[in-house]
């Protein structure tokens, strides 16, 4: 598995995205800010897992991406609903 120059650039941009999202996760003054960052990180991870499938030439990572996306979505909705419950 060797990466072409364009793939290197894509990987660097993906890492930049993860870093910036993590920054918001750490800073995020309120809890919803952190949830937004976690949600974005989850979607980036889904894309990254699909990228891994391509790099390792192994479609099993696509299933991992799909299941990860499903669980992350359920988690996001669960946390959001829990936050809503706090306000009452």
């Amino acid at each position: 598995m060797t990466l072409s120059v364009l793939q290197m650039i894509a990987l660097a941009l993906l890492v930049l995205g993860i870093g910036l999202s993590c920054l918001r996760l750490l800073l995020g003054p309120t809890t919803p800010d952190r949830v937004v960052a976690a949600d974005t990180l989850a979607v980036i991870t889904t894309a990254g897992l699909a990228g891994l499938a391509s790099v390792f030439d192994n479609p099993i990572y696509l299933d991992v991406a799909l299941v990860y996306g499903t669980l992350a979505f359920a988690g996001t909705v669960a946390i959001a609903r829990a936050l809503e419950g706090d306000s009452k």
């Binding site: 793939q7 650039i9 993906l14 910036l20 999202s21 937004v36």
Partner: peptide, 17 residues
């Protein structure tokens, strides 16, 4: 397309910050 997609992701994260 990979580069374009990752660029949008990075821009979105920049917006997040």
């Amino acid at each position: 397309l990979l580069v374009i997609g990752c660029a949008f992701i990075a821009l979105g994260s920049l917006g997040l910050v």
